[in-house]
């Protein structure tokens, strides 16, 4: 009998979304349990809210005795997944140093360091050693791959296949499949390199084709020209 009855009730007792709750009560300790649940919900539903998570870390900062390190770890994994945004640092700024000394956080900090410095090989090696931390969060691998592709796209017009393979940690047949998908959906082009295998042409952007950068300085506003009309006439 439960389901049908409970569902609408829940709707009524939670008239606000957690996002609204944070917006209305940014400094209210009573919403702490809601925010903790919301972290778990973000993990299971593969969604993300930096504002809600910072709000929770803030409440932990105000009342350290209420802190759950398990929740903090989840927030940090989610923040890693938000790269290239600086969310991981934003969270660390709020977490007391003695907490950061714990083993699981040390690992996450090392992982973040590898990502921040483009060392994807080391990152994937380290992540493989810490499966229990990162595998608890669905979508982790894909999110990091997306970040790797982001950095590669900033850097390369044409990237050698092995460099790509290392960055996204996909090889062989799976990589072929992945490339096929990217070619079909994301505008990637495969080229033959000079004798050394495949080159992947990444989509053009103003970052890997700096000449595409809009140059606003070139034009002269009309009203400036208008000023000399009387003289010209």
């Amino acid at each position: 009998m439960g389901r049908e009855v409970v569902q609408p009730q829940q709707q009524q007792t939670v008239p606000y979304t957690v996002e609204q709750l944070v917006a209305v009560n940014p400094y209210n300790p009573d919403i702490l349990p809601d925010l903790e649940n919301y972290v778990n919900e973000q993990v299971s539903s593969q969604t993300y809210s930096l504002d809600a998570n910072l709000c929770l870390l803030r409440l932990y900062q105000f009342e350290p005795e209420r802190m759950s390190t398990q929740i903090v770890a989840r927030i940090l994994v989610k923040a890693l997944m938000a790269m290239p945004a600086p969310d991981f640092s934003l969270c660390l700024f709020l977490i007391p140093e003695r907490v950061q000394m714990e083993e699981q956080f040390k690992t996450l900090i090392v992982l973040s360091h590898y990502l921040e410095t483009g060392r994807f090989r080391q990152f994937w090696d380290e992540a493989a050693k810490s499966r229990h931390i990162v595998e608890a969060v669905p979508g982790f691998e894909q999110a990091i791959q997306a970040y790797a592709i982001h950095v590669l796209s900033l850097t390369y017009q044409k990237v050698p296949r092995p460099v790509l393979a290392e960055a996204i940690n996909i090889e062989g047949l799976s990589l072929d499949k992945f490339l096929e998908h990217q070619v079909a959906n994301c505008g990637w082009i495969l080229e033959k390199g000079h004798g050394r295998g495949q080159l992947i042409v990444l989509p053009r952007s103003e970052f890997n084709h700096p000449e595409l950068k809009k140059n606003n300085a070139d034009g002269i506003p009309f009203d400036h020209i208008a000023r000399i009309f009387p003289i010209l006439g």
Partner: peptide, 29 residues
């Protein structure tokens, strides 16, 4: 070189990538 790119390209308040680089480059192969 990837670190250079990552660190010189910040994410602004709206999630847009903005370049802070005075000197830019790209790699072709």
């Amino acid at each position: 070189l990837m670190t250079y790119k990552h660190k010189t390209h910040a994410v602004d308040g709206d999630g847009k990538i903005i370049s802070n680089a005075d000197l830019d480059f790209y790699i072709d192969d």
